Amino acid sequence: MPAGRYWRDGGGADRWTIHGERVVDDTRRARLSIADVELPDGIRFEQYVIRAPRAAMVAVLDDRQRLLLMRRHRFVFDRWGWELPGGYLDGDEKPEVCAVREVEEETGWRPYEVEPLLSFQPWVGTADAEHLLFLARRADYTGAPVDVNEAEQVAWIPLAEARDLITRGEIVGAGTVIAVLELVARQARPPPAPGG
């Protein structure tokens, strides 16, 4: 094996074998099951698996490089923090439609010209819960948020300050952390050379 190579090629012998999966609970927002899996070396065990519908989130930036964030409480780990607006796709809903709908419902701002930024899986060892992250550079205020239970506060926060909120532990959600770091990295990249 060449130096520095720590992964396998992904051929059949290197994959985990799934002998079965039994559902423990199945709801609109998540399916919990126990998978009977076998490692390539023959070790066999059971592992909990969570399968959730795709979710869409939007990083809305204004022309002053401020990010639209919501401050909310997450009861699961009992903390307040800042997050991007977003939510689960409804049925066959297009991700960009969901993204726009969620921002407006949760913040009272309607984003325009939504473009894909990236996608990610926040908990790859246990869950299949794809998150689609979008970017919008413009939004219009349409009124108070429709969903009053989503956020205690909605604010436009300068991107540099949002980066500091990560450091201080006030942004902890994977999607928001990823979006802020990606947008800060994009700002730091030199512009492309002319003709290149």
Rank of each mutant, 00 (worst) to 15 (best):
E102H: 10
E115Q: 14
L181G: 07
L89K: 09
L68Y: 04
R110D: 02
R29F: 12
L159I: 00
R189V: 09
R101T: 04
E182L: 10
R15Q: 15
T17H: 08
W80R: 15
R137F: 00
S33P: 03
P85G: 07
G10R: 05
E150C: 11
W16C: 14
E150V: 12
A99I: 04
G196P: 00
G169P: 13
L89W: 01
P2C: 02
R79W: 09
D90Q: 11
Y48V: 15
E130A: 11
L67Q: 07
I43V: 13
A127Y: 08
R51K: 13
R29C: 08
V103E: 03
R64H: 13
L132A: 05
E170G: 06
E106P: 01
R71C: 01
D164Y: 03
A155W: 00
R29Y: 14
F134C: 03
G91T: 04
T176N: 05
M1T: 11
G20K: 02
R22A: 12
Q153K: 12
V37M: 10
V154S: 03
G81R: 09
E113D: 15
I166L: 01
A56W: 02
E152F: 09
H131F: 07
A59R: 01
C98H: 02
R22P: 00
A13Y: 07
W16M: 15
T27V: 10
D36G: 04
E152D: 12
G175Q: 02
P190T: 06
R71F: 02
T167F: 01
D92M: 04
R189S: 12
E93R: 08
V180A: 07
A30P: 02
T107C: 08
I43R: 15
E105I: 00
A179W: 04
D14I: 00
M70I: 14
P194E: 13
G87I: 11
L61F: 01
V58Q: 03
R8L: 13
L132F: 05
L67G: 03
L39R: 14
A193D: 10
E104V: 04
E150M: 13
P85K: 12
E152M: 07
T176M: 00
L159C: 05
V146M: 02
P194N: 04
G143H: 07
A193W: 08
L133K: 06
I18K: 07
N149C: 04
V49Y: 00
S119L: 06
W156T: 14
E83R: 11
S33F: 00
R189E: 14
L132C: 09
P40V: 08
V76T: 15
V24W: 02
T142D: 02
R66Q: 12
V172G: 09
L132K: 07
D36P: 05
R72A: 11
A59D: 04
W123G: 14
W156N: 08
R54H: 09
E182H: 11
W80L: 15
